[in-house]
Structure formats: C-alpha cells, structure tokens
Amino acid sequence: MRVFLSYRREDTAAHAGRLADGLRRRLGRSDVFIDVAGIQAGSEFDAAIAEAIGRSDAVLVVIGPRWLSARDADGRPRLTDPQDYVRREVAGALARSLRVVPVLVGGATLPSGADVPDDLVPLVRRQAVSLDDATWQRDVDALVDVLRGRQAERPRRRAWPLVVGGVLVGAAAATAVVLLLRPDTGGGDGETAVLASCPDADDGWTRLLGPGATASGRVDEGDAGSLDFTVTDVFAQAREDGRWEVVITSELANNLGELREHGDWVYDQLEVDRQPYEQKTCFSVEARYPEPGQRSRGRVGFEVGDDPAKGLRLVVQDSDYSRDFTLTTAASP
C-alpha cells in the first residue's frame, strides 16, 4: 500500500508531518510520500511529484482551516490558479482514477462543490476522514483501516498500548471504519472541549516538585531523533469534592528533524500510586509548533482521584512512541 500526501504547507504542515510519521510506522517508511522527505536533492519538483502520484495506490488530501482560503501575493485564492501545486496534485490524482481520500484536520470541514474549481469537484463528493488531535492515534488507525478496506466496530474507549522499558512495542489493532471521528465527551454533540489556560499557583496550592528539582523523560524515536521533556514544577490543590487538580510545568525540546505539535495530547496520562488518570483540566503553551532544535514550555493540568503525595508518574507520547517517568515519589510518613 503506497500513499501520497497532498497538503498546503501554510495550512497543514505540522499535521501532515505528524500523519506521515504515523503512516510510515503502520505501512512502512518507503510506502509513504510527502514532499519534504520524498524528493531527492536535485530532482525536478513537478516530475518527482507526478512520478510519486503515479506509483501510489491512494492519495490523501490533507485539508485544514486555510486549505480553501489560502491566497497568493496578489490576494487571489490559490486554488483558482490552474498552476497551483495543490490543485495540480489533486486534479492529477483524480484524473488517474486513483483512490483519493479527503483528510480533515484542525477542525476543518469539507468544502462544497460550489467553492472549488470544476476539476476538484469530485474530491469534495467523496467521503472524508477526520483526524482529531485528542484521538489522533485511534483516528490514524481507522484511516489505515479505510485504506486497507477493513470494516469492524471499534470500541468507544481507547485501549492503552503496551509499554516495555519506556518504548511502545505494540499497539491496539485498528478495528473500525468510523468516518468524521470525534471523541466521546459525554455530551450530545460529541465535540472536543477546549481546555482553559492553566492557573498560576498561589498559596492555595501545594508544591510537589521544584524549585531546583526537575524530572525528565525522553521519547526516543530511533534514527528520527527524540522529544525530550523536562518537568520543572508540579503543584496540587485539593478540591471540595474530594478530588485533586495537579498542574505540571514542562519544557519540550524538539530533537527531531521536523516540526512537532506541542499539544495537550502529548501528555497522555498522569499516574498517582500507579493508578492512571486521563482527564485534563487545563493546558497552555508558549510555542504550539516547535521547529527542530526549538524548545517550548507548557502547562497541563490533570484531575485525579487520589492524593498526589502518594507519588506521580507522567506518560508522554508522540505518534506511536510513548514514555513514562517519575515526577515525585511517595511522601515519607
């Protein structure tokens, strides 16, 4: 199964890169083409793109919020230009009768036929797949199922991957074709809630880590590099309902060769005395998409049901890689 990713850099560069990584780990590195990695130095761009599309079994058109509205230097919509590279990629794939799948990211919706040039109308008549940041791995699994033609029902709750020695060694098999996926939030509309910014700690909070002490963990992605996390502060506050809120300040260092998103989904779960908790209460970040070599500081809050003084471990992830590390140990009696 060879897959070509079509995307507009100013619209979905980070999402497309993240999707390419996930597909390579599921399908094989050589079977996924994305222009930043798939074109050899000195190659003619147009010829390389045409060749890659011709060798592909499927073309994924990654559509973000600016895919339709992107404009050139003169203020004209890029898609109205017959020479626009995205339009040429998609129109060329449609003309070859390849399998072309619209992939919606960043909350984007599928354009209507009236909004696109005539040669792209067949694209917007096709069933779209939506990838949500909050359920990214599960949604990519479902996309691969779509590409492979598997159709089975997926459980509503996520199955945790097996982590041995801090490295993900297996993932739950994809078991559903669910299009336009949204996580189950308990509400009627199924939309993902937007997290509030994390508060500054005041006298009502208890410091569990810092200042001066830190905790760190590395998500090792082999030859691609790593994401390195350094936690500098951990505060906790008891609530009237008997639960706790724990707010973590973390610095992410992007030591990979491409853009990464520093989103709340990176902080997979917080364990208290080995009991995992997934419910987040807040999130704020300095640089949402750190470039290679860049650092980004963020805060994430978790709601937990047990006293965090019993000891904390944080699980962080990137695509199919995961790592957990100790933040604090149990307080002495």
Score class of each variant (00 low, 15 high):
residue 43 S to C: 04
residue 268 D to W: 09
residue 230 T to S: 13
residue 53 I to C: 04
residue 92 G to P: 07
residue 228 D to I: 12
residue 264 D to R: 05
residue 247 V to A: 00
residue 212 G to P: 01
residue 49 I to T: 02
residue 289 Y to W: 12
residue 286 E to K: 06
residue 280 K to C: 08
residue 67 W to L: 06
residue 254 N to F: 06
residue 300 V to M: 03
residue 123 L to F: 04
residue 153 E to T: 15
residue 99 R to H: 13
residue 99 R to L: 15
residue 272 V to D: 00
residue 46 D to F: 09
residue 152 A to R: 06
residue 274 R to P: 00
residue 13 A to F: 07
residue 254 N to M: 08
residue 257 G to E: 09
residue 56 S to D: 05
residue 33 F to S: 10
residue 88 R to H: 08
residue 280 K to V: 09
residue 331 A to M: 05
residue 320 D to K: 04
residue 286 E to M: 06
residue 6 S to Q: 02
residue 22 G to K: 13
residue 139 D to W: 12
residue 162 L to D: 14
residue 108 A to M: 03
residue 296 S to E: 02
residue 220 D to C: 06
residue 59 V to T: 04
residue 135 T to D: 14
residue 10 E to Y: 05
residue 65 P to I: 07
residue 74 D to F: 12
residue 290 P to G: 04
residue 97 S to M: 04
residue 251 E to W: 05
residue 44 E to T: 01
residue 239 R to M: 09
residue 159 A to P: 02
residue 143 L to S: 14
residue 9 R to E: 08
residue 285 V to Q: 07
residue 119 D to G: 12
residue 286 E to P: 00
residue 1 M to L: 14
residue 70 A to F: 12
residue 154 R to F: 09
residue 9 R to S: 13
residue 256 L to M: 12
residue 265 W to P: 00
residue 96 R to P: 04
residue 47 A to Y: 02
residue 297 R to S: 14
residue 295 R to Y: 07
residue 149 G to W: 09
residue 103 V to S: 09
residue 305 G to W: 04
residue 70 A to I: 09
residue 285 V to L: 06
residue 258 E to Y: 07
residue 265 W to R: 09
residue 240 E to M: 13
residue 191 E to V: 15
residue 326 T to D: 01
residue 254 N to K: 09
residue 83 Q to M: 14
residue 200 D to W: 00
residue 230 T to V: 15
residue 299 R to T: 15
residue 186 G to R: 07
residue 167 V to L: 12
residue 91 A to V: 11
residue 250 S to V: 08
residue 90 V to S: 06
residue 133 D to I: 02
residue 114 A to S: 14
residue 215 A to P: 09
residue 327 L to F: 02
residue 176 A to V: 10
residue 60 L to E: 03
residue 16 A to W: 06
residue 254 N to P: 08
residue 150 R to N: 06
residue 145 D to K: 07
residue 198 C to K: 05
residue 220 D to Y: 12
residue 256 L to H: 05
residue 183 P to K: 05
residue 262 H to Q: 11
residue 67 W to G: 00
residue 246 V to P: 00
residue 65 P to E: 13
residue 286 E to R: 11
residue 253 A to H: 05
residue 202 D to H: 10
residue 320 D to R: 12
residue 81 D to T: 08
residue 235 F to R: 11
residue 57 D to N: 15
residue 325 F to I: 13
residue 198 C to Y: 00
residue 67 W to N: 03
residue 281 T to G: 14
residue 53 I to L: 15
residue 9 R to T: 07
residue 101 V to W: 10
residue 92 G to M: 10
residue 141 D to P: 05
residue 16 A to G: 11
residue 181 L to I: 01
residue 322 S to K: 11
residue 27 L to S: 00
residue 66 R to F: 11
residue 233 D to Q: 07
residue 284 S to P: 02
residue 13 A to P: 00
residue 157 R to E: 14
residue 315 V to G: 13
residue 144 V to I: 08
